[in-house]
Amino acid sequence: MNLNGKTAIVTGASRGIGAAVAERLASLGANVAVIYAGSAERAAAVCARCRELGSAAARAYQCDVADFDAVKRTVDAVRADFGGVDLLVNNAGVNRDGLLPTMREADFDAVVAVNLKGTFNFLRHCSRLFLRAGGGRIVNISSVAGVTGNAGQANYAASKAGIIGLTKSLAREVASRNVTVNAVAPGFIDTDMTRAMSEKAREAALSRIASKRLGRPEDVANAVAFLASDAAGYITGQVIGVDGGISL
């Protein structure tokens, strides 16, 4: 796979899965726009690793993905800096876990705003660029929770299920213009989010995984890199599980 000359936007790219995706795309030669919300220091470190791995250029952009206008400004800035956008990976996400009967409205709204609305915002502004350019690749990061549901994560599961609906709908709309839209649905991946789980919860999760281990961010990044490449040009509207068999 070769992404030389391509420019990729990766949201939520300052750590975890997003950082691994940015670095994997960089290793294939892509320019990378590292979109982050909080830590400029972590984002700068990811950019440095991207350049070390072979990216022609990597730059960090702070953006509230839930803000429609801020996303437009960010996409415009990336276009101006790199001359265009070829790949979009929507990875930014948060969780505010709790049982639905006692879930605060604010916790539901916050998760949907970042995970689902944030994905829509970047899809809305980037898809138009891809249509005008006559091609593009979009990969949205969903979750196994969006496929199967998960107790204590109704808000998170709903947002990730919504991403699957967005993926399939947009794929139908843009397929004839050489734009592919796919989703990756990770299972339990060894990131800050899963490290915050209690030991009991982690053991319960491991007992459900056929491969008996947590995934690595690199496992997800490899799937994203394939879907972003020319090798996946005839694959669109699909949801690829990277979950060690938990959804079997």
Score class of each variant (00 low, 15 high):
R79F: 08
I138R: 01
A158H: 06
P186G: 05
E218T: 09
G233I: 05
V112Q: 04
V114M: 05
R42Q: 13
A106E: 15
A151P: 07
R124S: 09
N91M: 02
E23K: 15
A66N: 02
R128G: 11
F82L: 13
I209Q: 04
I138M: 08
R195N: 13
T74E: 03
G29Y: 07
A171I: 11
A196P: 10
V242H: 01
N178R: 12
N121M: 11
R216K: 15
F122Q: 00
G149D: 06
G215K: 00
A8Q: 04
R195L: 11
A151G: 13
Y61D: 05
N222H: 14
V242K: 01
D86A: 07
A77I: 08
V220S: 02
R124V: 08
C63P: 05
R59G: 09
R24D: 06
E52G: 11
G12I: 00
V85F: 04
C50F: 10
D76M: 11
G16K: 00
A19E: 03
A30N: 08
N182T: 07
V89G: 00
G152N: 10
D192L: 10
S207V: 10
T102L: 12
F130E: 01
A205P: 10
T7R: 05
L131M: 14
A201C: 09
R96Q: 12
N222P: 04
D107M: 08
L3A: 06
V174K: 02
A8I: 05
R213W: 11
L25Q: 08
S229R: 10
R124P: 01
A145E: 01
L170Q: 07
R213Q: 13
G149H: 05
I35A: 05
I240M: 11
A40C: 09
R208W: 07
A154H: 04
L87D: 01
A196T: 14
G12W: 00
S142T: 07
A37W: 03
D97Y: 03
V181Q: 02
F120I: 08
I138W: 02
A45L: 12
I240V: 15
A157H: 02
L227N: 01
Y234V: 08
N95G: 05
A43D: 03
D76I: 08
V65L: 07
V184T: 08
D81V: 09
V174N: 03
R177M: 11
G98V: 09
M1P: 08
P217Q: 02
R51F: 05
A13D: 01
C126T: 14
T102W: 10
T148M: 14
K212P: 04
A30P: 07
N178E: 10
L53Y: 13
D97F: 04
S247Q: 08
V224K: 00
S176C: 12
S143C: 10
S143K: 04
T148S: 10
I189R: 00
V147E: 08
T74I: 07
I163N: 00
R24G: 03
D243L: 01
L123Y: 05
N95C: 06
S211E: 11
R124G: 03
G233S: 15
A225L: 11
I209F: 06
A106D: 15
A185Q: 02
